[in-house]
Amino acid sequence: MGTQALNMDIVILFLMALAALWTVMTRSLLRSAIGLALTSAMLTILMFRLHAPLAAVFELSVCSGLISVVFIATISVTQPMSQEKVLQHMRDRLERFWYLPILLVLIGIVLSFVSFKFNLSVPLPEIEKDPRVVLWNQRPLDLLGQIIMLLTGVFGIIILFREAKQK
C-alpha cells in the first residue's frame, strides 16, 4: 500500500472520527442516529480498503441500514426531551465532567511513555483465503451461535411486547 493510499485511509479515518463526534455532540437524537449511519458508512469504506469486502457489505446493509431504521423508529415512537431540559442537561454535563479532557490528556501522556509490542504474526499451517469456506467449513459453530443469538433476540422481543400488551 503506497503513501497516497495511506493518506486516503487517514482522510477516511478522520471523516469517521468527525461523524462519530457529531453523533455524540449533536442535541437531536435523530441527527445522532444519522451520524451513526454515516460513521458506519465510513467504516464500510475502510473495511473494503482493508480487504474485507464481505464484512463490509454486511456492515453497510445491517449496521448502516437496519440499525439506523431501528433507532429512527424507536426515536419516532418515544417522546423527545424539551429544549429547556436539553440545555439544562448540557450545563449539568459540563459541570459534572469538566475533568474528563484533562484525564484523557494525562492518560495519553502516560500511554505515550509505555512501549507496546504486539506479536501479530501468529503462524498457522494453512491460511484459508475464502471467508465462505472459513465460515461454513472451518467455523460452523459460529453459525450455530448466530442462529441461537437470533432466536434469543426474537424471543426476547416477543416477550417484551407481549408483556406490554397485557398491561
Partner: peptide, 23 residues
C-alpha cells in the same frame, strides 16, 4: 493476512450487534 477468518468473526459480531440493539 488472516482476512477470511476475521471476516467470519466480524459477520458474527454484526449479527450479535443487531440482536443486542433490537432487544
Amino acid at each position: 493476512a488472516h482476512e477470511a477468518l476475521v471476516q467470519s468473526l466480524v459477520i458474527t459480531l454484526i449479527v450479535m450487534e443487531v440482536v443486542i440493539i433490537a432487544v
